[in-house]
Structures are given as structure tokens and as C-alpha cells.
Design a binder for these strands. Structure first.
Length: 824
DNA sequence: AGCACGCCGACT
DNA sequence: GTCGGCGTGCTC
């Protein structure tokens, strides 16, 4: 290997802006390469998995380098598209490469802190070991799952790393085994004939086995199970199935294998069994879909991104499928993005029915082993069973594509595409457009209710715009009815949170054996408890929010930090024992419904009832099969589900969405109501939507009734322009955090002042957000609004510079500052 | 991030 | 006199 390649710059999974330079030891020079994972020591007792970003021969001036310990990969697992994409994400969303690395790889491909060390059993002492080394080996031989910390404890030494390292060099221990193979592929064993025997040959085998009755029986049983004589291609027979059918032991099967009659082979087991699915080909498009698809094709000739604005049930999915097919024909990969909650078996099965095992699914409820499997599969790309179509959520933009032709972002308006909590705070839709650009691929955004920004981009010609406003099979849009709950309350007609109109309509539906969906954008039982006499409300001790009451486990829970306590029976403030629950969460609605309709089959769908892996699918399945009459849920119920028998959708409180203090509240309320309404009325008859509200005259409610996206859009656009918001301006939210409230406030004032000197009126704040304390950290925000046409990177550079100035001040150095670019 | 180092209060 | 609280600084 080249003598000059001595150093490697490594990305470590840390929120630090720089790369770390390590030296490449002689014996690893042939292995270490850009894009491979390596294990490096960091600090005095930690190991990290890092990614090699550069290799060079420039020795660092200010420090001496440590050696790379091992190289984990035979081939690079990060390709150059990904490196470019990572750089863009880190730059645009103001995060470190380490954070991007953490977000991009499934945990099974990373290794943090707790590196396991194990003794090599084959190791025989050739060299002299020091006393401590012997001691360490001894510990390792007698216990499992040992990491540096436990070693230190067991040996009583402060730091065993140098000894471990030297043992590693001598080959006495290994640390990489568990890293390379942290998971096992799910495999299943099958049996087949060892070669393509003719019928007479098989007959010979059977006669030759007449002294080995059990073996003969087994062979016959195999022929029977595989329908060898009846089917063109023998059916698959699993070892398990065969052994069970004859009640024989494995050894008998083994002797047949040894005689070269049968053989055992393994096949990777997919999460969803494909053996039964027959690929059914494409469905023909109707005339509207045809027009839309040819417009999409022609727009793609000039533009890299096209918005498909298609009303609910207009058959967007079929259009996607046709476009995917075209890409597969030219050998390109396709990424199909969906928001987390919309990724249902319905869609998966539809895609699988057309593209079979070319479809891979990437989802947060998959365990890590499954994610690693998918990652590796995409990575091998050209092999026969590599996925060509990936159906996935936000994080699938980080998969190792090398040949993307098209990215579809379905339900592009969904705010779950924006990552908030750990950095990088990226938006998968926007990132997709950049990713597509890297691959010289196209992006198709699809939705019934485009985000204002997206529609603006389409209207101004930045994106192509294709409208599909005809529901398929000429289904009618649902009839929307408003219930004025202010009026009903005044007249004392409300039954708990149900208006007389809603009650009456629900009764009719249940009589007609039709299904109902009720929507309430609030989980839990009731939003808060309140003391009847003094008005005291229990709050979270760590966050500035009231605690939500969950009845099923009788707990008060903080939805921000998950703090939970038993509800107090008496008021902590005045000692009164009358604590009253206020407001309605999905849980309480469910309970009250059971009271009103004891014969109806009712279920609830929210975060709490869908935590388990298949819980969501089970609920959907039950509802589809009409094992349920009423489904109560949060926004989960509005996502891309197609049910045939839903004749009524009830929105219990439209105002809670409308009154949310955010510039996007109206837009989001419209989207939510329009999407939920889209669930009503399928196939047979026109559905009904009932919206309960205190403000029936609200313009957004009017837009929803008239199904008038365009006027909602133009009203909102005018407001955005007037109040300086996207799409005319770009927003960057600056958050300051500290345990000391006084200190953050002061810091925010100082930072605001210095920023205002540069940006003038474009700086808003400082402002305490609605929830100004989370996990005992006080939070203050500053908002920067910059003109769309000005350079965002320059603004970001200034922000960084000013934030660093602030941190250089003695008093403020422990303030945490972070940026959220294009916040939601 | 996470870990060591270091400097102050309540305990044998 | 020490144990351990968290505030600060460094990691190639």
C-alpha cells in the first residue's frame, strides 16, 4: 500500500463540529478506505465506531494521533452520494456531521461507548503477558458482556484500555466480533431434491430405501408435500414442516441428505411473507389519471420537482405505481416516502402485489436487525434480490442509494417529515429534493392539501404542477355539516362533548350498520385536572405544562418528559377533595361513547394504543373487516386509510386546532379537516362529515365546507406576505437553553441585541415559547426571518459567529444554543 | 455527548 | 479528615 496514506479523518458520532484525525497502523493500511467503518479509541476509556471521510499524509501540528484499532468493513458502506448528502444536511440544517452520522445509520451499524471485549478462545500464549494483562484475560474468560468500565471495576484498575489494546495486538482478545455481527438474519430452512432427478431415478431411490423405512417415509412425505408429481415447479417445503408431517427426527433427514437425495437450503425470511403474493401487474389508469401522468412526464422534462395535487381518492397511488414501473424498466431505484403513521399494510401490500420482492420497507417500528438488513440489501444494489423500490419514512433518505431515478414524497404537507428532536433537524421533503438532485433524479410531491410553501413553488413555476381533481369512480365529495356547539351549550343540549346533531347522526349510522370515525386531536383522558374550589391544576415539576390524565393506568402524565404520578385525591393547594377533570382526550371520548352506545363496538387509535409493533395494523384490520363500529382517534385516523363503509366522520372540536398559536395553525387545520373528511363516503354512497365548532363562521371552516383549497391558499398567502412568513421569507429559530431562567433571559437579550444590529427588524424576540421549561431547562427563542432571495448560508454563518461571541462571554458560556432551520 | 478533573458542603 | 455534589473543559 501507498506509503503516504498515513492518516484518516474520521466522523465520530458526537455533536462536535470537527473531524478527528487518527493514524493508520501499518497492518491496516490495506483495509482502511473512505466510507468504511473503523473503531477508534476516544478519550481515556471509550471506543467509537467512526466513518473514514478522508485519507491523507498531513500530520496534525498540535497533537499526536492515536491509532485506528480495527477496520470493520470489507467494502465501504457509505458511498459518495451519501457523503455529499450528509455534508448538505449538516450545512443546511446547522448540525454536525456526527449528528448526521447518528441519524443516518441504523444502530446496529454503530457502536457507542459500551464496547464489548471478549477473550479469544484459540489464543495460546506466545508472548509474555504482564500481570494486569493476565488478570484481564482471566476476567474475560469467566464473564460475558464485558466492557472497559466493568473491566476497570473487576480488576480494580483505573484504566485498563492500554492493556486491552496490547492484548488486542497480541490477538488475545477481540472487540470487533460483536460489532460486525450484531444481528443475525432471519433464515428458514427448506428441503428440496439434491438434483433434478427424473421420475425413474426417484423411483429407484424409493426402492433402494426399503430397508430404511423411516427414510423412505420421509422422502415420500417430501414428494407429497411439494406436490412433486403435480406441479410444474415443486412447492417449497420447510424442514420444520417435513419433520412435523412424519414425526421423524432430524438425523433421518440428514442421512437422506448424505445420500445426496435431498438437500437442505436456507432462505432469508422476509418480514412479510412473499411466497404467497402473486404479482398482479399494473392497473389501467382512468382518463384523468392518464392526463395527469402524461403531464407529470412532460413537466419532468423541464423541472426536477413536480407537485401532484390530487384530491382524496383520486387514485394517486396508481399513478405512482406506473411511474415506479418506468424507473424499474430503466434499472433505476425509487424511494417512496410516507409519513410514519400513513405507512400501512394497505400500501405495502399494494406495492408488493405489483413489484413483489423488489419492494423493501423501512419503518421505525422495525427492530434494528431488520433495519440493518435493509440497509445492507440496498447497498448491494445490483444483485438479484436487491430492493429496487424502498417504501419508507423520513429517515430512509439516508439509505445507501446509488442509482436513484425518482423520489416520491406522498402526503408532502405532513409535518412529521420534519425532524425535531435530535439534530439534524431536517425536512425529509426538502432533503429529498436535494438528494434527487445529487442523483440527477426527479422528485414527485403528492397530496390532496399541499403545504402553502409547496403550492407557492408550484404556482410560481419552480415546481411543475399537476392537478387531479376528479375522485375515482366519480365518487362524490362528502357533505359537510356544521354543529354550533356554542349554541348547543347555551341551550344545554350537549351530551358531554357530543352535539345533538352528532348524536342523532351516530344513531342513524349504527342502525344502518355503517361505520363512524371520530376525530379528536388530543390523546389521554382529559387534558388536565382542576380543583373545583380554588382552580389549582397539577403541573409537571420539570416542564411548564399541565399534566394529562390517563385513565387506563390512572396516571397523570407529562407529554413532554414522560414524568408520571398518581393523581392527587385532594388539592395540594387548598386541601379540597374535589378534583375535576377538564376537557376531552380520546380516552375519555371512548369511555363516554361506551356509555351512550353500549351495543356498539368501539375502539380507540392514538399513540397509547398503537405503541406495540402490530397494534396499528390490527386496529385497521378490525375496522376494515367491520369488527368495529366506531373508531375514535387522533390525527392517526386521517392518514391515507381507505375504508369502504365509513359514512360518518365527526370532528369533535375544530377550534382547538384553529386557536393554536402558530402561523401555520389555519393551514394545518384546513389540511387536517380536509384529510379527515376524505375518509368519509366510499364506493356506495355520499359520506357525511360533521364538524363541531364554537365558531361556525370561521373562514377556514367555510373553506373546508366548500372544499376550496385555492381560496384558503390565497388568503393564507396574503397573510404570510403581510406578516413576513414563508414562503416569502425563510425562518431560522434560535433556541437558548439553561437551567437558570435568569441567565437564559439575559443571554437572549444580549444575543438579540447583537443580531438586531445586523439583521434589524428581521429579528423577533426574545420570546418564551408556550412551553418555556422542559426537563428543568428554561427555554427562550429568537426568530430570524430572512428574505427568500438573500443567501441563507451567509445568514447562518453570521448566526454561528454571533452565537460563538455570546459563548465566549464568561457569564454565558454554559448556555446551550441551537438552530432550527425552516422550523415547523 | 460523556468522562475526568477539580473545587466546595455533610458525613464517619 | 473524606465522599460525592455538579461546574468546566477536552476529546484526534
Amino acid at each position: 500500500m501507498n506509503k503516504t496514506t498515513e492518516f484518516a479523518d474520521i466522523i465520530l458520532p458526537l455533536p462536535l463540529a470537527q473531524l478527528f484525525t487518527y493514524s493508520i497502523p501499518e497492518e491496516l493500511k490495506a483495509d482502511v478506505a473512505i466510507g468504511k467503518r473503523v473503531v477508534v479509541p476516544f478519550g481515556s476509556k471509550k471506543f467509537y465506531t467512526g466513518i473514514v471521510k478522508h485519507i491523507h499524509n498531513i500530520p496534525p501540528k498540535d497533537y499526536s494521533t492515536k491509532d485506528i484499532l480495527t477496520c470493520l468493513d470489507e467494502y465501504p458502506i457509505i458511498n459518495s452520494f451519501q457523503f455529499n448528502f450528509w455534508d448538505w444536511i449538516a450545512q443546511y440544517y446547522q448540525s454536525t456531521l456526527g449528528d448526521v452520522f447518528k441519524a443516518a445509520l441504523p444502530a446496529g451499524l454503530k457502536l457507542e461507548s459500551q464496547t464489548k471485549i471478549s477473550a479469544n478462545e484459540e489464543f495460546r500464549t506466545k508472548e509474555v503477558l504482564s500481570k494486569t494483562e493476565e488478570q484481564i484475560l482471566n476476567v474475560l474468560k469467566h464473564s460475558k458482556d464485558v466492557n472497559i468500565a466493568t473491566l476497570n471495576q473487576a480488576t480494580g484498575l483505573k484504566n485498563t484500555l492500554p492493556q486491552v489494546k496490547s492484548l488486542l495486538e497480541k490477538g488475545a482478545v477481540s472487540i470487533e466480533e460483536q460489532i460486525i455481527n450484531p444481528y443475525k438474519e432471519k433464515k428458514k430452512e427448506f428441503v428440496r431434491l439434491a438434483s433434478d432427478y427424473s421420475e425413474s431415478e426417484i423411483g429407484d431411490f424409493i426402492t433402494s430405501l426399503k430397508r430404511a423405512k423411516k427414510q423412505q417415509e420421509t422422502l415420500l412425505s417430501y414428494l407429497n408435500l411439494s406436490k412433486h408429481y403435480f406441479e410444474e415447479i415443486a412447492l417449497k417445503v420447510s424442514v420444520f414442516e417435513l419433520l412435523k408431517s412424519t414425526d421423524i427426527s432430524r438425523t433421518i433427514l440428514k442421512s437422506l441428505v448424505e445420500k445426496n437425495i435431498l438437500e437442505i437450503y436456507q432462505e432469508k425470511l422476509d418480514r412479510i411473507d412473499l411466497s404467497e403474493t402473486e404479482t398482479s401487474g399494473l392497473k389501467a389508469l382512468n382518463e384523468y389519471q392518464e392526463t395527469a401522468i402524461s403531464k407529470i412526464r412532460s413537466d419532468f422534462k423541464e423541472k426536477n420537482c413536480v407537485l401532484l395535487h390530487g384530491v382524496t381518492s383520486s387514485g394517486k397511488t396508481e399513478i405512482y405505481i406506473h411511474l415506479i414501473q418506468e424507473q424499474l424498466e430503466v434499472g433505476k431505484q425509487v424511494l417512496y416516502l410516507l409519513p410514519e403513521i400513513a405507512l400501512t399494510t394497505q400500501i405495502i401490500n399494494r406495492l408488493r402485489s405489483v413489484f413483489g420482492n423488489k419492494v423493501g420497507v423501512y419503518h421505525s417500528k422495525f427492530n434494528d436487525a431488520e433495519r440493518v438488513e435493509i440497509y445492507n440489501n440496498i447497498h448491494q444494489n445490483n444483485t438479484a434480490n436487491a430492493y429496487q423500490v424502498i417504501l419508507g419514512v423520513r429517515s430512509s433518505v439516508f439509505l445507501p442509494f446509488q442509482n436513484l431515478g425518482l423520489i416520491i414524497v406522498d402526503e408532502e404537507h405532513e409535518n412529521t417529515y420534519k425532524q425535531y428532536d435530535p439534530a439534524p433537524r431536517y425536512h425529509a421533503r426538502d432533503a429529498s429534493i436535494y438528494l434527487a438532485h445529487l442523483h440527477q433524479a426527479k422528485t414527485l410531491l403528492g397530496t390532496a392539501t399541499p403545504a402553502i410553501e409547496t403550492y407557492y413553488n408550484a404556482k410560481t413555476g419552480k415546481y411543475g404542477l399537476v392537478e387531479l381533481l376528479q375522485r375515482h369512480q366519480n365518487l362524490e365529495m362528502p357533505e359537510i355539516i356544521i354543529a354550533d356547539i356554542k349554541e348547543a351549550k347555551r341551550k344545554k343540549q350537549m351530551k358531554s362533548m357530543f352535539s345533538p346533531e352528532l348524536m342523532q347522526m351516530m344513531e342513524t349510522c349504527l342502525e344502518n350498520k355503517e361505520q363512524i370515525i371520530l376525530f379528536q386531536n388530543r390523546r389521554g383522558y382529559s387534558p388536565y385536572l382542576e380543583c373545583k374550589s380554588c382552580g389549582w391544576v397539577p403541573h409537571c415539576p420539570n416542564c411548564a405544562v399541565s399534566l394529562t390524565y390517563h385513565r387506563y393506568n390512572n396516571q397523570l402524565v407529562c407529554h413532554y418528559c414522560a414524568h408520571s404520578v398518581h393523581p392527587p385525591s385532594t388539592c395540594e393547594h387548598c386541601g379540597s377533595n374535589e378534583m375535576e377533570d377538564k376537557g376531552f382526550g380520546t380516552e375519555k371520548i371512548e369511555e363516554e361513547l361506551i356509555g351512550f352506545f353500549p351495543n356498539a363496538r368501539i375502539a380507540r387509535m392514538d399513540l397509547d394504543t398503537t405503541r406495540k409493533k402490530m397494534a396499528y395494523e390490527k386496529l385497521i384490520y378490525k375496522f376494515e373487516n367491520h369488527e368495529l363500529d366506531i373508531l375514535v382517534g387522533t390525527q392517526m385516523v386521517s392518514k391515507g386509510l381507505d375504508f369502504d363503509n365509513v359514512s360518518l366522520v365527526g370532528i369533535l372540536n375544530a377550534d382547538s386546532m384553529l386557536n393554536y398559536p402558530d402561523y401555520r395553525a389555519y393551514e394545518r387545520s384546513y389540511q387536517m379537516m380536509a384529510q379527515v373528511s376524505g375518509r368519509a363516503g366510499r364506493k356506495k354512497k355520499r359520506g357525511k362529515v360533521l364538524i363541531q365548532t364554537y365558531t361556525p363562521e370561521h373562514p377556514i371552516i367555510k373553506n373546508v365546507i366548500e372544499n376550496d383549497y385555492i381560496s384558503m391558499y390565497s388568503n393564507q398567502l396574503a397573510e404570510r406576505k403581510e406578516y413576513i412568513y414563508p414562503p416569502y421569507y425563510r425562518l431560522i429559530n434560535i433556541t437558548l437553553k439553561h437551567k437558570n431562567q435568569n441567565l437564559v433571559n439575559k443571554a437572549a437579550v444580549v444575543l438579540t441585541k447583537s443580531l438586531r444590529k445586523i439583521f434589524g427588524i428581521r429579528i423577533l424576540g426574545p420570546q418564551a415559547p408556550v412551553i418555556n421549561r422542559i426537563q428543568n431547562f428554561h427555554i427562550v427563542t429568537i426568530l430570524l426571518k430572512i428574505e427568500k432571495k438573500s443567501s441563507p448560508s451567509k445568514a447562518k454563518w453570521i448566526l454561528n459567529q454571533q452565537a460563538n461571541y455570546l459563548k465566549e462571554m464568561e457569564a454565558f458560556k454554559s448556555i446551550q444554543i441551537n438552530f432550527d432551520v425552516d422550523p415547523m
